[in-house]
Amino acid sequence: MKAAVMRAPNAPLSIEEVTISKPGPREVLVRLKAVGVCHSDVHFWDGAFPTEMPVILGHESAGIVEQVGSMVSAVKPGDHVVSILSPFCGTCEYCLTGHMSVCHTVNGEQFKRGPTEAPRLSIGKEKVSQFLNLSSFAEQILVHENTLCVIDKEMPMDRACLIGCGVITGVGSVFHAAKVEPGSTVAVLGCGGVGLSTINGAAIAGASRIIAVDLSDEKLAMAKKFGATDFVNPKNGDPVEQVKALTNGGVHYAFECVGLKLTAEQGYMMMRPRGVMTVIGMIPPGVNIEIPGIELLVTEKRLQGAVMGSNRFRIDFPRLVTLYQQGKLHLDDLVSDRIGMEGLTGALQNLKDNKGSVARQVVMFD
């Protein structure tokens, strides 16, 4: 199969012929149809997060099942599926208490092949690393069955793929992690693909005011399509004070969707007492968030994280598809460009440069 291989940070991806193995007992071979380009890919491509090379990046994918292993029960050939980077085992404490999105962080090795087994991906005798157990910048993926969810075959693949990361991260954080209440006020810091999905989720949840915060006026204009009611550009003054002025003292919920120390701290400070601040952005390793300790005590503000929207993806994905089909989830507006595999390096650079017109760029395979 053809795949976009990363051999060095910040270097162009090379389109190479890669050998993909046959499915093991609980593995599934999927022919990909569409893959979203996510800012998380950029963090590894530009070296901010370490990864073993050579590697095939990509993780926001949708396709059609081609082959299944002997023990696979969740999917069958011909199924249309969306992947996720947070597989679940189904037997650990986190899965059994309904927190399956955390499972992969403590049980990750069981979703990989063992050290004595043949690698899933290779070029000649050279092993190719599988990114987040997926490696979706390729024509096919070979994955554990618990990374996949079957969806309605009528769902367009270029929109379905977005559900697998950016959309579930944003919408799921609203529904599951923060549990936004109807009539409440929300601030969303960062209006990229995840931030726009968070805004969309807050609108579906019935928030009365949704304040979009971003340095790009283009992205703030996009945020209006997803349900934002107010718009704050930090270039026009302290965003904390702007948000407090709009809400008579602060919002009930804040979501950090950038992955920066500054925006995380600003999000916390723009909440009213008893507010809930949820960090969604990928804050780099070694970076600490600083907040006044006394605030936690006297205002009862809460600071939390949410990985992949605290999802239950086999329940969530079909529901999100239905919300799209009902016109409530605005996936059409989320796709800013459709590209081929050869356009991937440029797409990653667009995200790194924070190009204002870019929400989600989608690789199409046919």
Score class of each variant (00 low, 15 high):
residue 2 K to M: 12
residue 2 K to Q: 15
residue 4 A to G: 08
residue 4 A to H: 07
residue 8 A to F: 01
residue 11 A to T: 06
residue 11 A to S: 09
residue 12 P to Q: 06
residue 14 S to G: 04
residue 14 S to T: 15
residue 19 T to F: 06
residue 20 I to Q: 00
residue 22 K to E: 14
residue 22 K to A: 13
residue 26 R to L: 11
residue 29 L to K: 12
residue 34 A to C: 05
residue 35 V to G: 03
residue 39 H to W: 09
residue 40 S to L: 08
residue 42 V to K: 02
residue 43 H to C: 10
residue 48 A to L: 12
residue 53 M to K: 14
residue 57 L to N: 07
residue 59 H to T: 09
residue 65 V to I: 13
residue 67 Q to Y: 08
residue 73 S to L: 07
residue 80 H to F: 12
residue 86 S to W: 03
residue 90 G to S: 10
residue 92 C to P: 11
residue 93 E to I: 08
residue 100 M to A: 15
residue 101 S to D: 14
residue 104 H to S: 13
residue 106 V to S: 07
residue 109 E to N: 12
residue 110 Q to S: 13
residue 113 R to C: 09
residue 114 G to P: 09
residue 115 P to C: 04
residue 117 E to C: 08
residue 118 A to Q: 12
residue 120 R to T: 15
residue 123 I to Y: 02
residue 125 K to I: 10
residue 125 K to N: 14
residue 127 K to D: 10
residue 129 S to E: 12
residue 131 F to K: 02
residue 134 L to R: 04
residue 135 S to K: 04
residue 139 E to C: 11
residue 144 H to K: 02
residue 149 C to G: 10
residue 150 V to S: 10
residue 151 I to M: 06
residue 154 E to H: 11
residue 157 M to F: 15
residue 160 A to R: 05
residue 162 L to G: 02
residue 168 I to T: 14
residue 172 G to Q: 04
residue 174 V to M: 00
residue 177 A to R: 13
residue 178 A to Q: 04
residue 179 K to E: 13
residue 182 P to I: 15
residue 185 T to C: 05
residue 186 V to R: 02
residue 190 G to N: 03
residue 192 G to D: 07
residue 193 G to R: 00
residue 195 G to L: 09
residue 195 G to W: 10
residue 197 S to V: 14
residue 197 S to M: 07
residue 201 G to H: 09
residue 201 G to T: 05
residue 202 A to V: 15
residue 203 A to F: 09
residue 207 A to N: 07
residue 207 A to H: 05
residue 208 S to C: 05
residue 209 R to N: 12
residue 214 D to F: 14
residue 215 L to H: 03
residue 218 E to Y: 03
residue 219 K to D: 13
residue 235 K to M: 13
residue 239 P to Q: 01
residue 239 P to R: 01
residue 245 A to G: 12
residue 246 L to H: 10
residue 255 F to D: 05
residue 256 E to D: 10
residue 259 G to W: 10
residue 261 K to I: 14
residue 263 T to S: 11
residue 264 A to D: 11
residue 268 Y to E: 01
residue 269 M to P: 05
residue 269 M to K: 13
residue 273 P to A: 05
residue 275 G to A: 01
residue 276 V to A: 04
residue 278 T to K: 01
residue 279 V to A: 05
residue 280 I to T: 03
residue 282 M to C: 06
residue 282 M to T: 11
residue 289 I to E: 03
residue 290 E to C: 03
residue 297 L to F: 04
residue 298 V to F: 01
residue 301 K to L: 00
residue 303 L to E: 01
residue 305 G to M: 06
residue 308 M to Y: 14
residue 318 P to N: 08
residue 322 T to Q: 11
residue 322 T to I: 09
residue 324 Y to D: 00
residue 324 Y to W: 13
residue 325 Q to A: 14
residue 328 K to D: 11
residue 328 K to E: 14
residue 330 H to D: 07
residue 331 L to M: 12
residue 332 D to H: 10
residue 332 D to Y: 07
residue 335 V to D: 01
residue 338 R to Q: 14
residue 339 I to F: 05
residue 339 I to G: 00
residue 340 G to N: 09
residue 348 L to D: 06
residue 351 L to Q: 11
residue 352 K to G: 05
residue 356 G to N: 09
residue 357 S to G: 06
residue 358 V to I: 15
residue 359 A to N: 13
residue 363 V to A: 02
